[in-house]
C-alpha cells in the first residue's frame, strides 16, 4: 500500500488547538515538511512566541524555547550565538513581531542574525480575542477599533517585508499566503529557501504569511479566505521584497 500523505516527522502527534479555518496549522505543516526534507530536525531549535501559536513548542518535534511576548528574535539570537551549528527559527504573530517586538525584530534583521522568522500576519491579535494589530487594515473593525481603524488616531499599518528589506542584514524577505494549492507550494518553497540560507550562514530571513483568523474576523472559514484575498492581498502584495540570491559556488 502506497502512503500518499503522512504527518511530517518534525510534528509531534499532539493535536493542534487552532480554530477551524485558521491557517496556523497549514504553516506549521509546511515548516515541519521543510525540516524533514532538509533532515535538520536534530539540530533545529524553534522559538515560540506569545500569541495563538504559543503552543508550537508542543507541536514541533525539535527542541523548543518559549520566549516572552515580542522577544523571540532576541531569544533566537541567544540560542544561535551559543550554538552556531543549530538551525534556529522563530514563529511569531503580527502583534509579537511588529508591535511589542518591533525593536527586537529590526535589530536582529539589521545584525543579519542567522535565524529564520516565520511571521503570521493575520491583521489582528488572535489570542487575546481580536484587538487591533500593527497590521490591522485601515477601516478594519476590531474589538479595540469598534468604528473601524482610523489611521488619523490609531496610526497606519506596517508593511513588514517592505520595511525590513532596506536593511543590509536581511538575506530574504518574502510575503506569501496559503489560500490555494499554488500559493501553499510557493510558501513552502520560500520557507525552504529561508532555512537553506540560514544553513549557509547568509543572514536574517523572514517569510511573512498572510493568514486568516476567521474567529476574530467574525467570518466563516470560506468567507475568511475571500476576505483575505479581497482586502489583505491588495494592501500586502505577495512577492519577494529582498533576496540576496543563491550562494555562488
Amino acid at each position: 500500500m502506497a502512503v500518499k500523505g503522512q504527518r511530517p516527522h518534525a510534528l509531534t502527534d499532539v493535536p493542534f488547538h487552532y480554530c477551524p479555518g485558521c491557517t496556523h496549522g497549514i504553516v506549521h505543516r509546511l515548516v515541519a515538511e521543510v525540516i524533514d526534507e532538509l533532515g535538520c530536525e536534530g539540530k533545529t531549535v524553534g522559538v515560540a512566541s506569545v500569541g495563538c501559536s504559543v503552543f508550537t513548542y508542543n507541536y514541533f518535534n525539535c527542541d523548543m524555547v518559549q520566549a516572552p511576548h515580542g522577544r523571540a528574535p532576541a531569544v533566537a539570537t541567544g540560542v544561535k550565538r551559543a550554538r552556531p551549528d543549530n538551525v534556529v527559527f522563530t514563529y511569531q504573530g503580527d502583534g509579537d513581531l511588529a508591535a511589542i517586538g518591533a525593536g527586537e525584530t529590526v535589530h536582529a534583521a539589521a545584525r543579519g542574525e542567522n535565524i529564520v522568522a516565520i511571521f503570521i500576519n493575520n491583521a489582528i491579535y488572535g489570542m487575546t480575542g481580536g484587538q487591533m494589530a500593527p497590521t490591522t487594515l485601515p477601516g478594519q473593525v476590531t474589538q479595540t477599533t469598534p468604528y473601524g481603524r482610523d489611521v488619523k488616531t490609531a496610526g497606519n499599518p506596517i508593511r513588514v517585508c517592505e520595511m525590513l528589506s532596506s536593511l543590509d542584514g536581511v538575506a530574504l524577505a518574502q510575503r506569501v499566503t496559503v489560500d490555494c494549492v499554488k500559493n501553499v507550494k510557493q510558501a513552502k518553497a520560500a520557507i525552504k529557501k529561508a532555512f537553506q540560507y540560514q544553513m549557509e550562514g547568509r543572514g536574517y530571513c523572514i517569510i511573512e504569511v498572510v493568514s486568516t483568523c476567521p474567529t476574530n474576523w467574525g467570518l466563516a472559514p470560506q468567507d475568511a479566505v475571500k476576505w483575505l484575498r479581497e482586502n489583505m492581498l491588495p494592501y500586502y502584495p505577495l512577492g519577494v521584497y529582498k533576496d540576496i540570491g543563491e550562494a555562488k559556488e
Binding site: 522559538v47 524555547v65 520566549a67 516572552p68 531569544v75 539570537t77 541567544g78 540560542v79 551559543a82
Partner: peptide, 8 residues
C-alpha cells in the same frame, strides 16, 4: 532575552 536564549 539573548541571555535567556543562550542559557536555554
Amino acid at each position: 532575552n539573548m541571555v535567556l536564549g543562550a542559557a536555554a
